[in-house]
Design a protein around this nucleic acid. Structure first.
Lengths: 134, 134
DNA sequence: TTCTATGCAAAGACTTTGCATGCTG
DNA sequence: CAGCATGCAAAGTCTTTGCATAGAA
């Protein structure tokens, strides 16, 4: 995705495309992936960026709110940000901490249950925890 | 569950039944529920217990490891401990932070996907995020 | 006695916030 | 110019750790 495509995408989502936000978006949206704030910061630093930690965190929160990325909660010690925003599910390798997508057509949920009264569904997530075969 | 039943249960799981562990277990296993470490500590304090924060955290980790309770990761800011250990799924109310069980027979997963090579499945969790209907 | 648990406070990881500066429209 | 974004460091949460004391087998 080119720099200007990224800028356009930010604008579509109502986000002011500043230099730092463009950098963050370019790295994260480059391909389907799952990164924590710290991993992302590392990647940015590795390619010479000088964004601050606070800006990365703030930017990711902003992106999450406006639907540009999806927040994932699988590891109690950190959040992951998923560049794939449409509904899909995950494997989580409990030993390595690695997340991977479950191919869309390989899992289906049967008979969504009755929600508690007065509530509506926001999302459905299936998480399969895996580990190395011994 | 009586105090001595709790003690027996701890022993079954290879856990030395000390006074503090009995208190923690008695509160958490009293009924099906989902509590964070802090909520549990509050409950204990409310009923006059003087366990320390560190002991509650350590005890919950211990209980999790030996299968006495199930750790839940739904809120990035804290862990929840579930007194129901057999496989089941959850609703998570994103506004109130409340967790509730999904009745076992109301959800079924169809066609478990192929796992990444060399790995085995540890668990499958379905989490349905809900919020109040507007 | 020997090993393990407990309590307290301190350390630690991750994330957010406050505030002054600098950029955007 | 008015308003928002940025960077830095400080503050905040939740959780773990270190160490001395106390308790269990």
């Amino acid at each position: 995705m080119s720099r200007s495509d990224v800028a356009a995408k930010l604008k579509e989502h109502g986000v002011l495309p500043t230099p730092q936000r463009l950098e963050v978006a370019a790295v994260l949206l480059e391909r389907p992936q799952h990164l924590s704030a710290d991993q992302l910061l590392e990647k940015l630093r590795a390619q010479g960026s000088r964004v601050s930690k606070a800006t990365v965190y703030n930017t990711l929160n902003l992106f999450g709110e406006c639907g540009l990325v999806k927040e994932l909660t699988v590891d109690p010690s950190r959040k992951y940000y998923d560049s794939t925003t449409h509904a899909h599910h995950h494997f989580f390798h409990v030993e390595t901490g690695k997340l991977s997508d479950i191919p869309a057509n390989q899992v289906e949920i049967l008979g969504l249950p009755q929600l508690p009264p007065g509530t509506e569904q926001e999302s459905v997530e299936v998480l399969i925890r895996i580990r190395d075969k011994k």
